[in-house]
Amino acid sequence: MKKTVWIAYDLGVKGDYEGLYSWLDNHGANECGHNIAVLEYDVKQNLIEELQKDIIENVTLSKQDRIYLIWREGGKIKGKFIVGKRKAAPWFGYGAQEPQIDEEVEQHG
């Protein structure tokens, strides 16, 4: 079954962009802005496991590399890092947010 997925990637300065770009090109991906691509991926049973394995086998990755997968499932949009993890947002602290007040928790006992 074919699934439409979006891939956001951050391979840093020294990343294997040639390997990733070859993988994206081989899967008929379309560019969607800076470091984002959309493609139809042929899934047999498990989208995340199959796509993650496919990328890892074809792209040389380092500990700092990150790839985020976005897909639709059951009418909902889902997302997950398939390589790497979330880090602090560069825009944190720029907004005009109310300071959070710690709530007191009443302890019984």
Results as ranks from 00 to 15, higher is better:
105 V>Y: 10
102 D>N: 13
86 R>A: 14
106 E>G: 10
104 E>M: 14
6 W>L: 13
85 K>V: 08
97 Q>W: 06
105 V>K: 13
9 Y>V: 08
69 L>R: 07
46 N>G: 06
18 E>Q: 13
43 V>Q: 04
109 G>N: 13
51 L>H: 01
32 C>Q: 00
63 K>W: 00
30 N>I: 12
15 G>K: 08
90 P>K: 14
20 L>C: 09
22 S>M: 04
17 Y>C: 13
66 R>L: 10
13 V>F: 01
9 Y>R: 07
46 N>Y: 05
54 D>Y: 02
48 I>W: 00
60 T>F: 00
68 Y>A: 04
12 G>H: 03
17 Y>T: 12
84 G>S: 07
92 F>Q: 12
61 L>H: 01
71 W>P: 04
106 E>N: 11
68 Y>C: 10
103 E>I: 13
93 G>L: 06
39 L>A: 02
16 D>Y: 01
108 H>G: 12
17 Y>M: 11
85 K>T: 11
107 Q>L: 09
9 Y>G: 03
88 A>K: 14
76 K>Y: 03
11 L>D: 02
22 S>H: 05
76 K>V: 09
5 V>H: 03
108 H>M: 15
2 K>F: 02
70 I>S: 02
30 N>C: 08
25 D>Q: 12
3 K>A: 06
15 G>F: 03
88 A>I: 15
22 S>R: 13
42 D>E: 07
41 Y>S: 03
67 I>W: 00
25 D>I: 13
19 G>R: 04
87 K>F: 09
22 S>L: 07
28 G>Q: 07
92 F>S: 12
98 E>G: 10
99 P>K: 03
